[in-house]
Design a protein around this nucleic acid. Sequence first.
DNA 1: CCGAGATTTTAGGTTAGCCTAATACTGTAT
DNA 2: ATACAGTATTAGGCTAACCTAAAATCTCGG
Lengths: 228, 228
Amino acid sequence: MSAAVAHEPLTRSVEDYLKAIYQLSPEGRPASTSEIANLLALSPPSVTGMVKRLSEHGLLEHVPYRGVQLTDAGRRAALRMVRRHRLIEAYLVEFLGYSWDTVHEEAERLEHAVSETMIERMAGALGNPSVDPHGDPIPAADGSILERACIALSDVPIGENVEISRVHESQPERLRYIASLGLRPGVQVTVVDRQPFDDLVTIEVGTDKQVIGRELGHALLCARKVKP
Amino acid sequence: MSAAVAHEPLTRSVEDYLKAIYQLSPEGRPASTSEIANLLALSPPSVTGMVKRLSEHGLLEHVPYRGVQLTDAGRRAALRMVRRHRLIEAYLVEFLGYSWDTVHEEAERLEHAVSETMIERMAGALGNPSVDPHGDPIPAADGSILERACIALSDVPIGENVEISRVHESQPERLRYIASLGLRPGVQVTVVDRQPFDDLVTIEVGTDKQVIGRELGHALLCARKVKP
DNA sequence: CCGAGATTTTAGGTTAGCCTAATACTGTAT
DNA sequence: ATACAGTATTAGGCTAACCTAAAATCTCGG
């Protein structure tokens, strides 16, 4: 069952497809070809074509006109890429002076090029971390992944003090903006006010007050914090 | 003249061709297509085809049936790859526990994937080294390279004490063997005897004696050492 | 200086991945 | 129930890089 099969090596673009499908639906709900096309910036027919090849290789199941789901083998391969990506991000931030908002594209290329050995050495140098600089959980080498419960900042009740645990955003410009507000995983914020429309929330970070709109409010995921 | 042109990005295989041609002839003597084919494990017709494309892009000059020479632009691109390769090797040995005999293939993949920024960060972390773990000089970011004079171990006179400065070999198995003999850049050896045939030399490494054959004798390059 | 053998190039074919345009399917709204 | 809007797939093409087989060119010994 859990035989650690020697995979035939996957191409870069296959790895990207699998990771994208996983990210569109970590829970395994079917993903549509156009969602995939959109995420990878490809045309829908290209995705249909690749999806067909991947399902022949047993990495996913495709019901025409209905969508695509990863098989166990596909999910394993996808989680492997997620692990690589997040460990590389963590390594670059810790050892090569990257900021957590600029590290994504570097990891995007390296995740395809680095050997298993090197990944595990980087993990070791980091002390086998369980989250990356964005606060996203790093899958273990065996493919297990531990998602911690969290709540969107937009949904935190007024008066409550929470710790930002994940920043769910990949556009560099937005990430720079978020960083410039002093918001990042580990920071504590208090929701001091909420506008009745548009999900606007006012938060207190240290001594500063910020107003946060809907999109950002959903990108910032928080763990509820027990008051000291 | 020395305008730092923004290159259109080169593909992985173009980078490999340029590096190969440079390595076949750092001095600029023409390289034959079959030498290139041999080094890259490709068929000669494939090389002819690529060479044609590259000469159209101004990266090399090709005189049909005669051979190939890098242009200035081609040499710059090749040296850039050599710099990347050697810095990556040095980084992996220094920070990720690689041994100098196993680091080559990892670098071979990473050199195509790493950004300029990351290369310079690695160089910084290493203190801008001038040689890699094999003792090969690392070209500067501006493309200048400093080759230090050295002599093959086979040609060192009897009785002389020298320091191994470079190990010119890329096959992992041979490198492991060399490492197992305790031979690596920085080690001092004394030539104690020489057989009149086959370039066999007997050397003293610390307290051990070794007999070295022709191929190894040419792979080990030495700087003459002033006796203390 | 001529031809045999080695080297190189041309000719023609394959594969992976991408594209656009045209066609087929789905589901919803009348 | 049906037509229409939206989404997905098929059809047909392109490019980069590779390959093998055949033709062209070079080199060197006699």
